[in-house]
Design a protein around this nucleic acid. Structure first.
Lengths: 145, 145
DNA sequence: TTCACAAAAGATAAATCTATCTTTTAAGTA
DNA sequence: TACTTAAAAGATAGATTTATCTTTTGTGAA
């Protein structure tokens, strides 16, 4: 559905956001460990998230990644957009460019249900809400050992 | 959502099925042209579809690919299963193996809505229904020139 | 200002997915 | 049987995605 990179990105974003209420910045190493992703690759993803203003970064000692208030209220859709683009919410199941309500592929009207359900879901779910969920301890970001 | 190969596979399957009522077998070349996919790659995909009994093939003169009656009633889910597997219907958005109702990731209960909507859609849509839709001329398998 | 720290940027490599080409096998027909 | 046709199978190549490593840039503190 979304790429592996995008899954890492979502997990990283939520983890960073979960530290916001304590005003803590986290480094690449800690993030990579928490989300069980390769460190260097996590760095690249965080770079992209920073460029897209999904998270904020600060270099140097006491530096790291954090979420500001406005970023906490971004929908998770923005994370997907930054990493994979919005194709997953718009592309035809048959892979046809011109597929639309007016010029539908054979599965168009059925598939639109899924696409719009997913879009709504990702649009209405904020980074903040996921991070809060995480802080309850009832959710997790990596597979337990 | 589904891979490029899978999109080719769905289009090829529906095209082959659309010829079933006339009892026509179609060759790789014709299929590839119809769905606008590379011929050799289409051959590979059809090979997989045949192994998975989604379509039937016959070698030699007057050979080609066709759908039998039972195959027409297969859900399109089976095409996805043959090419991409069922991961798209079961995998966690966060990419976590142990994510479940009992051990949910922060987005689990929201994402389940999308997954199950999609599953139902693919389970209830048969190859036959898509092929019939195609035969009305209101749908298409490639981008118009 | 100098030093240490941590992210950014750039280059490279491994793995997977998409695509092509050649050879082999199976089927129908003369 | 010999011959033609078309898919199957196997080998190889290109493109994209995932992953790693090295160098540069920016930041804070002594």
């Amino acid at each position: 559905m979304v790429s592996k990179s995008c899954k890492y990105a979502i997990r990283a974003t939520v983890f960073i956001a979960s530290k916001a209420k304590e005003n803590i910045k986290v480094g690449v190493k800690e993030i990579a460990e928490e989300i069980e992703a390769p460190e260097a690759f996590t760095g690249k993803i965080l770079q992209t998230l920073n460029k897209n203003k999904i998270v904020t970064s600060l270099k140097g000692p006491y530096g790291g990644f954090y979420s500001d208030e406005a970023q906490l209220d971004l929908p998770i859709l923005e994370v997907v957009n930054a990493i994979d683009g919005l194709g997953v919410f718009t592309d035809c199941v048959f892979g046809l460019h011109q597929c639309s309500d007016d010029h539908p592929c054979p599965m168009h009207f059925e598939y639109v249900k899924t696409r719009s359900q997913m879009y709504t879901s990702f649009k209405n779910t904020t980074i903040r809400s996921l991070a809060e969920n995480l802080n309850t301890g009832l959710a997790f970001l990596k597979n337990p050992e």
